[in-house]
């Protein structure tokens, strides 16, 4: 009997202590949450206000006939604009061009970027120098680089202008596209390479040594050991670059202005909107581009699985 009460007492006491402690702790926890929200609120507000609202507004505009040259004719036409755009030959040409540029540039950049990453990571001499040099294309204003390429390929003016005999390369479709892609690749390969270099740094030196002890050739070490370890970094780099390439605009604007059927979808949307002042059609294209990008991102995220950035913080050190 006495023993029972003796054991009972501390139990109730500790339960009470626990309850009291819980209340106090959740107070501290609430403080932490509040501080977290407070600190993030401004950033979240700006990001959402400047993207979410406009994109919804854009959807609203895309359901209207709305040409600033004829503001009186503004009316709700449902999916009319979509029918117009999706049956338009220019749209599909631009879409094809954009896809072509995206696929070719990203593929070439992946290969060149891997080589550049390897050089920047492994070079025995002038590592700082080569990294500095590689950052210049990344940092330079795209328009400046585009002008440099434009002048370079202009007959007579440029050092490349007469490279392929007579005729101006920037006035023919195929050569124009090739130059646009060259400019894109020049500009963004270093960025790709930097992302891949971060992946290279994740490959443990011992793993490569172990592989060569196991008799793997250089190529086998690359494909069987390094690529699998680098896969998350490669996917991140591909995702960023693919979506970035799909937005191609600056280079085309400067190099060809979209002449000779070299417009990308961004270029086409811009022309309809700012030059044509057709808000309805421009918005429709904006929404379609947004959907296309969302689809690309969705496919990548599916590929990523758990390796998607942000899915685990700091987990992939």
């Amino acid at each position: 009997m006495t023993a029972e009460t003796a054991t009972e007492k501390p139990t109730t006491h500790s339960v009470r202590a626990q309850r009291k402690a819980k209340a106090r702790i959740s107070e501290g926890k609430r403080q932490e949450r509040k501080l977290g929200w407070l600190l993030c609120a401004p950033a979240a507000f700006v990001m959402i206000a400047v993207t979410a609202y406009p994109i919804l507004y854009s959807v609203w505009l895309s359901f209207q006939r709305f040409d600033l040259k004829f503001p009186d004719q503004r009316e709700f036409i449902g999916l009319g604009n979509y029918a117009t755009v999706l049956t338009n030959e220019y749209w599909w040409t631009a879409f094809g061009i954009t896809t072509l540029i995206t696929v070719v540039t990203v593929a070439v950049e992946l290969v060149l970027g891997m080589a550049l990453a390897w050089i920047m990571f492994r070079t025995l001499v002038g590592r700082g120098l080569v990294r500095t040099a590689a950052l210049i294309p990344y940092g330079i204003v795209t328009v400046v680089a585009a002008f440099s390429w434009k002048f370079a390929w202009t007959p007579d003016t440029g050092y490349l202008g007469n490279l392929f005999g007579e005729g101006a390369p920037l006035t023919e479709r195929a050569s124009s596209l090739a130059i646009i892609m060259l400019a894109e690749i020049w500009k963004t390969t270093p960025f790709m390479a930097l992302l891949l270099m971060a992946g290279l740094a994740l490959v443990p030196e011992d793993l490569l040594k172990a592989a060569s002890m196991d008799g793997a050739t250089g190529w086998q070490r690359f494909t069987k050991v390094m690529l699998p370890v680098m896969k998350p970094a490669i996917l991140v780099a591909l995702l960023f670059r693919t979506l970035d390439a799909f937005r191609v605009f600056d280079n085309i604007y400067v190099l060809t202005g979209g002449a000779n059927n070299t417009s990308s979808v961004s270029m086409l949307a811009y022309n309809n909107l700012i030059r044509g002042l057709n808000l309805g059609i421009g918005s429709t294209m904006s929404v379609l581009i947004f959907i296309a990008v969302a689809i690309i991102a969705f496919i990548f995220v599916k590929l990523f699985g758990t390796a998607a950035p942000g899915s685990d913080e700091g987990g992939r050190r």
């Binding site: 501390p10 500790s14 202590a17 626990q18 402690a21 819980k22 702790i25 501290g28 926890k29």
Partner: peptide
């Protein structure tokens, strides 16, 4: 003296 630490999920890290 009977120092106790309880964490938010209710677990007692240190008990009396």
């Amino acid at each position: 003296d009977k120092v106790t630490k309880a964490f938010p999920d209710g677990t007692l890290a240190v008990q009396e």
